[in-house]
Design a protein around this nucleic acid. Structure first.
Lengths: 163, 163
DNA sequence: CCATATAGTAAACCTGGTTGTCGATCTTGG
DNA sequence: CCAAGATCGACAACCAGGTTTACTATATGG
């Protein structure tokens, strides 16, 4: 065998994906543990991303579904659940009677801000562990390796939404 | 405000987790697209890891469940499904009549080897994109930031198993 | 030898997606 | 202007894949 040694001879290729997933999980779990501690125990892992996708401007069920990569029915269920818990509210669209604008309530905005803050804390802590330069490299390398839509969250399950 | 600028001011903290997940997905999807192309369209995303967890030595349902972080019943369902598809077989344990050893069939070993090969290919391709040193850094940084059990796959859902 | 622990299995249930269908409303082309 | 088609949101039925609970059979240790 001649030529450069492939990386795979050093580390089995399945390991990195597992590490990626483990790190993802660790971040998410940490954020939601903190959310629970701060009075939002019902917020499920994916809700943070849903809030992010709704944003402070509001959106519609169809649009939300597209952003999350799920069917509009699934998005509708999630919205209904979040509405029940008081995190979002639906209002008729004045310009289009078919649409209902989904908007975060004050409580929803609070969770959005809080979760953003905790995500930042996690990131800062990671930066402290591996160094800010390495963290930045993580960003750029991952973006290079897996470009494309960031918000594809059609990953139900351990993410458990609704309720 | 005095002192060092936190990373979070550069990039919102929720972005890195999404990147981690996106990269994870990209790798998994690629492997299973290739598996499907090579005659194993029924192998679901998490099965690769299940195969990995079973290994060439075989295991038992309880042990597998512990490795995957699910209940033994869930592991039992997965095993039953894989058995139906001819990827694993169950044999009585000569030393303990309660146990049934789960072992990969020839077909199962084939998938295990194939998926390992494709994972390696993906990793090599990533190394070509970002450089072998950066890839190694990815490994060590992620391990530093999220240490612990690698095989915690209690993430059902977009992973869909059984059938 | 009996009490307790362990392996496997099955049934009922829960969550959270999907597909299929529908009525209501908007939009567009003739 | 109006009919045809597209779009939005909802509901129902179904399905996948987990969990809980409960049971049987076997092992093991005091």
């Amino acid at each position: 065998m001649v030529g450069r040694v492939p990386v795979s001879e050093a580390t089995p290729g399945y390991e990195l994906p597992l590490r990626l997933f483990a790190a993802f999980r660790a971040a998410i779990d940490e954020v939601h543990a903190e959310l629970a501690r701060r009075g939002h125990p019902d917020v499920r892992p994916m809700h943070g991303f849903v809030f992010q996708a709704i944003g402070t401007d509001g959106t519609t069920a169809v649009d939300l579904a597209a952003r999350l990569g799920v069917t509009k029915q699934a998005a509708g269920k999630t919205i209904a659940a979040l509405e029940r818990q008081g995190y979002v509210e639906r209002a008729a669209d004045p310009g289009d009677a078919r649409r209902k604008t989904v908007r975060l309530t004050a409580r929803g905005v609070e969770v959005l801000a809080l979760s953003a803050r905790v995500f930042d804390q996690v990131q800062d802590r990671w930066a402290a562990v591996i160094g800010a330069d390495r963290l930045a490299a993580l960003h750029t390398d991952l973006a290079a390796v897996a470009p494309g839509e960031l918000f594809r969250l059609d990953a139900p399950g351990w993410f458990g939404a609704d309720r």
